[in-house]
């Protein structure tokens, strides 16, 4: 039996996406090892911030796939949702690890104090834990085992994104433009979901005839 054309297309697309997602990490690693001066006067801070920013970018990209499905009427985007989500989680955990290992050198009392006493770190830590749990339960076996609860559990990705954005906003001293821009992207993505949701349509779209199938409003 030969593999279909679409299989190969998907394979190529996934490989390219993996490479693209790994690129920022590879570049950061290259800079740390060979050109630490390119990270500026405070390379540790740059490293932690870059990893955190890429985590947020990839998480927002992951959350953009469902709205993209709505807008393009194509489900093809969903093929890449898990892999992008896993990459977002990977960057998040590396961001956490850089803070824990490189900045604080696994100094447990300091870390415990940070997580307990500083809400900015508490929420960032919570977001990391959520993404870790979602990563572990992202396999088909876990989907089968958790059944319906899987969907509920994985809805917490929105909570993780909110906490991550809040964490970003909270660590800024005064200039909130960057976190605000990320928050706006998140808000737009959420808005598209709400507008496209079945419940919203049922309530606010009178053109839809109840009981009849696929009467599209927009």
């Amino acid at each position: 039996m030969t593999l279909s054309k679409s299989f190969w297309q998907r394979w190529v697309a996934k490989t390219l996406l993996h490479l693209a997602a790994a690129m920022p990490l590879a570049l950061l690693g290259f800079r740390v090892v060979l050109h630490p001066e390119s990270l500026g006067a405070n390379p540790v801070a740059t490293l932690i911030h870059e990893l955190g920013l890429w985590a947020l970018r990839l998480l927002l990209l992951t959350l953009a796939l469902t709205p993209l499905r709505h807008l393009t009427h194509s489900a093809v985007w969903l093929l890449y949702r898990r892999m992008l989500g896993l990459w977002a989680a990977a960057y998040t955990l590396l961001h956490l690890l850089a803070y824990v290992g490189i900045d604080q050198r696994f100094d447990l009392p300091v870390l415990i104090e940070d997580v307990l006493k500083r809400p900015w770190i508490t929420i960032g830590f919570a977001a990391s834990l959520i993404l870790l749990v979602l990563s572990i339960t992202s396999t088909h076996a876990m989907m089968r085992r958790l059944g319906r609860r899987w969907q509920t559990l994985h809805s917490s990705v929105y909570a993780a994104a909110l906490l991550g954005l809040w964490h970003f906003y909270w660590q800024v001293k005064k200039d909130i433009r960057a976190p605000l821009a990320y928050a706006i992207v998140f808000a737009v993505l959420m808005l598209i979901r709400v507008v496209r949701s079945r419940r919203f349509k049922a309530k606010f779209a009178p053109a839809t005839v109840p009981g009849k199938t696929s009467a599209r409003v927009l």
């Binding site: 990270l39 801070a45 900045d103 050198r105 940070d114």
Partner: peptide, 22 residues
């Protein structure tokens, strides 16, 4: 006295390199 959002007990010395301790 900590800053409300971070500890002031330690500091990162600029120029000490990526893997230097605080």
């Amino acid at each position: 006295v900590d800053h409300p959002r971070w500890s002031q007990k330690t500091e990162r010395r600029i120029g000490s390199g990526v893997f230097a301790p605080r």
